[in-house]
Design a protein around this nucleic acid. Structure first.
Length: 470
RNA sequence: GGUGGAGUGGCCGAGAGGCUAGGCAGCGGCCUGCAAAGCCGUCCACACGGGUUCGAAUCCCGUCUUCACCUCCA
């Protein structure tokens, strides 16, 4: 089976054919660490986490590089004398890392910072100047621009013609040959901190936006690599410019371009001006991290997610079906020869869905179908089938990063408190079952109501009563 | 104006010429002392108007609505 992905540049599904047999090199545009992460940032990172997990399951040795852009106009603009740009950038970087970790996004193979690759950026800029695709500004700004008119392929990623493009507003246009030219290097300006200035052949300054990704992708993955990913909103200008820079400099660059959909709220994109952004920290207060992951990861990666009230409740209900099956099957198989068994292999239909442009919604259909079959097997006391379903369910949830038994979701509860609670609840359940045996259902129901009031639900089954914290 | 998407049942969300996912909610049943959970069954669909076809949610033409991007964006 071949993994197929939708290539934005070709506007078609393409077989994933790695440059090197058995390996996959992925570069993902990470955040510009200028403010706190919102749920769109989480979704984006999650999409590539799913891609990485699936390629890994398929046997590829995946190298995932996700950058941190830690120098840019807004970071400098948001800094103050007491809160320097580098401290501000690092603080937000930590917030991003924390958000990613909480929803179980595996750390990338490497996470390079733009400020650590300025030398590599300058080398690309020099190559572009040498090849006639970049020039130093004609004014005294010290800026260096990419010469869009010198590169006929400019616009190929987003299929736009230069005459339909608006002027780039990233620098004073007086130094530009064409208003659509964009800055590769920005000359140091009076008032900007010295710590944000690097020496260069064109004078002291700092990198423009876009060049960092060309530099870091080639530095860590090579001048030709397999997949370039990022948010849909980065297609233009960011990815268009990256592509132009790298290819004009002579690099092959990415074989495939993958873009993830955005997260909307009330039908509109989150934006600062509308004030409708949902930040990661507040979202994670609304539901367990595992539920947040299930929710953000259950839509197809290319579709827009429109968040609405109640969405997390629905996600929680769906997830609980899976969790309660795993819990139920493990309780039933405990002390039998099937305990802990079931091959950790995903069903063929699940694999086919994932291979087909990472069709997670279809894959989830297979997962839920397997849960249903597993529950039916338990109802029929078919322990072999139940164990098989268990293995398949765990394999599927592991690939999707929603395996409830995985260490990252373990609650760090105090074991002693848990033990004390268990002793008390089990004592009450004994009383209740004694009452039930004596047909004193008033007393039995009173105990169940009391437990429910304390947030504990009781389920009676053939092998006894099972309690859980609701 | 240019570029690329979307419109599916009460809600979410797949599918892409005949097989009509899945989840949540609803209804009926089984199980249960009653529940819960689970299982079985079931109701409710493809924005609109034409066309192609034996057959269209799916293909074609047109219309409407809507979103994103067009140099801050995940």
């Amino acid at each position: 089976m071949t993994v197929r992905l939708y290539d934005t540049k070709a506007q078609a599904l393409a077989d994933f054919v790695p440059l090197e047999e058995g390996k996959a090199g992925i570069y993902v545009c990470g955040p510009t660490v200028q403010s706190s992460p919102h749920i769109g940032h989480l979704r984006s990172a999650l999409v590539y986490d799913q891609l990485r997990r699936w390629l890994t399951y398929r046997g590829y040795d995946v190298t995932l590089v996700r950058n941190v852009t830690d120098i840019d106009d807004k970071i400098l603009a948001n800094a103050t004398e007491t809160d320097p740009w580098w401290a501000l950038a690092y603080r937000f970087e930590l917030e991003f890392s924390s958000g990613y970790r909480r929803i179980g996004i595996q750390a990338p193979t490497y996470e390079p910072r733009a400020t650590a690759s300025v030398t590599e950026m300058q080398a690309i800029i020099q190559r572009l100047i040498d090849r006639g695709h970049a020039y130093a500004a004609s004014d005294s700004s010290g800026d260096v621009y990419f010469d869009t008119m010198s590169w006929p392929a400019y616009g190929e990623l987003t299929r736009q013609k230069p005459e339909n493009m608006e002027a780039a507003t990233d620098a004073d246009p007086r130094g530009k040959r064409d208003p659509r030219d964009f800055a590769l290097w920005k000359g140091h300006k009076a008032g900007e901190p010295e710590s944000a200035s690097w020496a260069s052949p064109w004078g002291a300054g700092r990198p423009g936006w876009h060049i960092e990704c060309s530099a870091m992708s080639s530095r860590y993955l090579g001048t030709a690599f397999d997949i370039h990913g990022g948010g849909l909103d980065l297609r233009f200008p960011h990815h268009e410019n990256e592509l132009a820079q790298s290819t004009a400099a002579g690099d092959s660059f990415a074989s495939l371009w993958v873009h993830n959909g955005l997260v909307n709220v009330g039908g509109q994109k989150m934006s600062k001006s509308l004030g409708n952004s949902i930040f990661a920290s507040e979202f994670l207060e609304l539901a367990r991290p595992l539920v947040v992951r299930y929710y953000l990861g259950s839509a197809h990666y290319r579709s827009t997610i429109d968040y609405h009230d109640g969405a997390l409740v629905e996600a929680e209900a769906a997830l609980e079906r899976i969790e309660s099956f795993i819990d139920r099957v493990d309780r039933r198989l405990d002390d039998t020869r099937f305990a802990g068994s079931g091959l950790p292999v995903v069903p063929e239909a699940f694999a086919a869905a994932m291979d087909d442009d990472l069709s997670v919604p279809q894959a989830l259909g297979v997962l839920h179908e397997t849960v249903r079959a597993g529950n039916a097997a338990l109802d029929n006391e078919d322990l072999q089938a139940a164990a098989d379903a268990r293995g398949a369910v765990l394999a599927m949830t592991e690939v999707l990063g929603i395996n409830p038994l995985s260490a990252e979701w373990a609650t760090v509860g105090a074991a002693e408190t848990d033990r004390a609670l268990a002793a008390l609840v089990e004592r009450l359940i004994e009383d209740r079952n004694a009452a039930r045996a004596a047909k004193d259902f008033t007393a039995a129901d009173r105990i169940r109501d009391e437990l429910a009031a304390a947030g504990i639900s009781v389920e009676d089954g053939p092998s006894g009563s099972h309690w859980s914290i609701a």
